[in-house]
Design a protein around this nucleic acid. Structure first.
Length: 595
RNA sequence: GGUGGCAUAGCUCAGCUGGAUAGAGCACCUGCCUUCUAAGCAGGCGGUCCUAGGUUCGAAUCCUAGUGCCAUCACCA
């Protein structure tokens, strides 16, 4: 049983027996480092129930606990804080209990409680950039964290593969492409298509400028430029199923998917199910018709359909245009329902989308609730802040983006450079080195992004490279490599990795701190899941590693003469290594055995 | 203008349900590699927790008002 649960019951018992009062709650906190003790009971809140001097009350309860609770060795009272010192045996017992459980801290999946996590969901006309990286890392990591917390998870994305913007790149390729392909140019498919999207925009702007020069006013020119009209015509053909257009669309989208797939692979993310907007964009209309009957929606004179959310403090929101065509909201309603049809065990969804769409999702969730779906109670918008550059917002059309592929290559190169300078890997093959550099470079990038609270915006300065020292991914990976190095050496010694640890006379303070830190991991996973926050995991792993390095420095592990102590330290190190690895796995970051 | 988010050290960030002297990293300054990987460890420097009120035994944390930055409020996606 959790020590806190035991103590809570005992404190209540103490209060009842000493003061003859019933205490509603007991407040705990970890003892601050500057005081002696492991766990602290705050006496102040008890003053609502009890009358008297907090220090005195604390002392009386402390004496009771010391007497009655086996795990408590001693206590001290500072002002209204009752600090309890726990016996070393308590920590050793805990360690023995967890050291051989694989996946310590993870809760096994409850199959009935499935959740779908959507992330990435890019347009198919431009390559992925730094903003997508944040989205992907967050979505993937939150999915992993939810799994670890006991949920069944489906990872998904909806690919925005239709619409006027797609036609623009298609048109540009048709007109200026000369039959170029990814193969013929050596370009990644998404990059090639992205280039044509930019080319369209350039040609279109030139055309508009020329029309304006010829005396046409700007608004009219923007609407009537022949390129735009041609793109619109192409969209109509696509919708009508025109063979030529559809086959071009398939071809170019195929290029993009191949390109994206490479980026996803390098980024280390994946999906269980893909949705395509071309399949889903007509969904939702029937639901709107239903909702209209039920009175959830209402129709205006012009035939457009709305929902009134003024009672919820929002506006009226359109769900169907007067010509009967869908808006984005219609589609999202339909898609959500479709997902539950596809996976009957879904009881909630997470949408990983930037915070600029906070309003949209607020409305979407409200509508789904009003339509009466039970799963609508468990919808969450994983909203995150933008990644901005010192020059401001990233804009694809203006070329002010940090390309995802380029950035990953750059990070890998930096890792290679630092590693070469340190020169520890002479024995490695070129291939192993390459793999390691990628692991470290990406580790730096991923950690850099995930350690920040999702809600906050990130300012990314490409000039100032991401750090590899201090509170960084490589620092944590390095600690893991150190631990593995010890474990490799252990093989030639008489240390057993699986024996039960005997209760030692005195635990080193650093050993105790490490076990305390390990104890937190299960709660940390739950907290991270509850808050949808990989940052919680990142910060925890950092604290653990920090603690380990301090231990490593102060205490000799393999140099210890006493075999029991040596064994304990090796096993403790091993467990820390495991937790670092599984924590990082939740962030989608790999850890090396050497670096 | 309405709504939502954010504001903590020079910079990047932690700070759980209110609790003890507000913590890390980077940068800057000191030490520590003949002993387990120095991408490390130990120490120093550095704070009106945006401002003003309020609630409380106690506020960076909760409430109110204000300031600044960002987003959003389309028959666009």
């Amino acid at each position: 049983m959790h020590i806190q649960t035991i103590l809570e019951a005992k404190v209540k018992e103490a209060v009842l027996s000493i003061f003859n009062k019933n205490l509603p709650v007991v407040e705990f906190q970890p003892t601050r480092k500057d005081f002696e003790g492991d766990i602290t009971i705050v006496v102040f809140p008890m003053l609502r129930t009890l009358k008297g001097n907090p220090a005195q009350i604390g002392a009386q309860i402390g004496a009771f606990l010391e007497e009655q609770v086996d795990e408590v060795r001693s206590f001290n009272v500072v002002k209204g804080f009752l600090n309890l010192v726990l016996k070393d045996a308590f920590y050793v017992d805990f360690f023995n209990a967890i050291k051989n459980t694989s996946n310590f801290g993870f809760v096994s999946t409850v199959a009935s409680d499935a959740i779908m996590v959507e992330y990435s969901s890019p347009n198919t006309n431009k390559p992925l950039h730094l903003g997508h990286i944040r989205n992907n890392l967050l979505g993937y990591s939150v999915a992993e964290i939810l799994k670890a917390s006991g949920k069944k998870v489906y990872k998904t994305q909806i690919i925005n593969d239709r619409g006027i913007h797609i036609c623009k790149s298609m048109l540009a390729w048709q007109k200026m492409g000369n039959g170029e392909t990814p193969e013929s140019t050596g370009l990644k498919g998404d990059k090639l298509v992205g280039n044509y999207y930019v080319a369209f925009d350039k040609a279109y702007k030139a055309e508009v400028a020329e029309m304006v020069a010829n005396g046409i006013d700007e608004k009219t020119a923007a609407k009537e430029a022949s390129l735009l009209l041609a793109a619109q015509e192409m969209l109509l053909k696509w919708e009508a199923g025109d063979e030529e257009v559809v086959s071009l669309w398939k071809k170019m989208n195929g290029w993009v998917y191949n390109g994206f797939e490479i980026t996803y692979q390098n980024l280390g993310v994946n999906f269980d199910k893909l949705y395509y907007e071309s399949d889903t964009y007509l969904l939702g209309k029937d639901v709107v018709a239903d909702g209209l009957e039920k009175g959830v929606f209402f129709k205006k004179e012009d035939g457009s359909v709305w929902i009134d959310l003024t009672e919820e403090g929002l506006d009226e929101k359109i769900v169907l245009r007067s010509d009967g065509t869908s808006v984005y909201m219609t589609q999202d309603i339909g898609t959500a329902i479709q997902r539950v049809k596809d996976y009957a065990d879904i009881n909630g969804m997470v949408y990983t989308v930037g915070n600029e769409q906070d309003y949209h999702f607020k409305v979407l969730f409200l509508i789904l609730k009003k339509l009466g779906f039970s799963w609508a109670e468990h919808l969450h918008h994983l909203s995150y802040g933008m990644v901005d550059l010192p020059s401001g917002k990233m804009k694809s059309r203006e070329g002010t983006v940090v390309d995802a592929d380029d950035l990953m290559i750059e990070m890998t190169n930096t890792a290679a450079k630092i590693s070469e300078e340190l020169g520890k890997l002479e024995a490695y093959s070129a291939e192993d080195k390459k793999e390691l550099y990628q692991m470290v470079g990406l580790g730096a990038l991923k950690y850099y992004i995930l350690k920040v609270d999702p809600k906050k915006r990130i300012l990314f300065d490409p000039e100032e490279s991401v750090d590899f020292q201090g509170n960084t991914g490589p620092f944590i990976q390095y600690t893991h490599a150190r631990i593995q190095s010890i474990l490799r050496k252990v093989k030639d010694t008489d240390v057993e990795l699986n024996t039960t640890i005997k209760t030692l006379e005195v635990l080193h303070p650093k050993e105790k701190e490490l076990i305390k830190q390990l104890q937190l991991f299960p709660d940390i996973i739950q907290l991270a899941a509850k808050n949808y926050s990989p940052a919680v995991i990142a910060n925890y792993v950092y604290d653990l590693v920090k603690e380990f390095n301090s231990f490593y420095q102060q205490v000799s592990i393999l140099g210890e003469n006493n075999l029991d102590k040596k064994t304990f330290r090796v096993q403790l190190s091993q467990k820390v290594g495991e937790v670092v690895a599984s924590g990082f796995k939740l962030l989608g970051i790999e850890v090396p055995d050497r670096m």
